[in-house]
Amino acid sequence: SPTVSMDELEHLAQNISKSHMETCQYLQEELQQSTWQTFLQDEVECYQSKPKEVMWQLCAVKITEAIQYVVEFAKRIDGFMELCQNDQIVLLKAGSLEVVFIRMCRAFDTQNNTVYFDGKYAGPEVFKVLGCDDLITSAYDFAKSMCSLHLSEDELALFSAFILLSSDRSWLQEKSKVEKLQQKTQLALQHMLQKHQRGEEILTKLICKVSTLRGLCSRHTETLSAFRAVYPDIVRAHFPPLYKELFG
């Protein structure tokens, strides 16, 4: 592992936390203020009675909005823009949705198993018409398990950066450069967890999330290709271009 001074780790942690706060889409206070606003039964039924393709399109739009914030987050991480453009794209293609899944825990209410979506808190039944109950259940379970770790915003920021800077993604041109950045981020995360007197096991639990995140994203890709096989014209004409670039 690289030799890094404490100062450097502190500086990186500060940079990543600031980048996260500037690009987190919703402030914690806004989210907490809205938790009492869950969709009413007739609103849930309204989502359930939408045509499948309309709901898919709505979700693609929401995911794309969230991803745009993640792109901004990446750009502000020290070192990211110094990578070659191929690697910036490889990392975002593979990792931006994973960061959206991580960020989902900020907007998740464990008490009633709901997540902030389209203006209110929504349970999994809202997404029924998408026809991918497995993926939805897994995403909710993931958010719930992330919530149970009670990470601070700083820790969440560093974990998101650690995931985004995964050096084992396919097609990286300067793998060792990404590797160094990721190692530094991991050290900064470790340092932060120690500073907050969190046990060693938190880091182990976070590292275990890596494969869960990859599973979630590959299930998303599979679900999208199944949808596209039936509705190719809807995807082509109505899905956000960025979404198609990332997952097409």
């Binding site: 745009q68 792109v71 750009k75 502000r76 910036q88 794209i89």
Partner: peptide, 14 residues
């Protein structure tokens, strides 16, 4: 390929 992503990366951070 990746036209939008290129564009987003090139836009200066606001």
């Amino acid at each position: 390929k990746h036209k939008i992503l290129h564009q987003l990366l090139q836009n200066s951070t606001s």
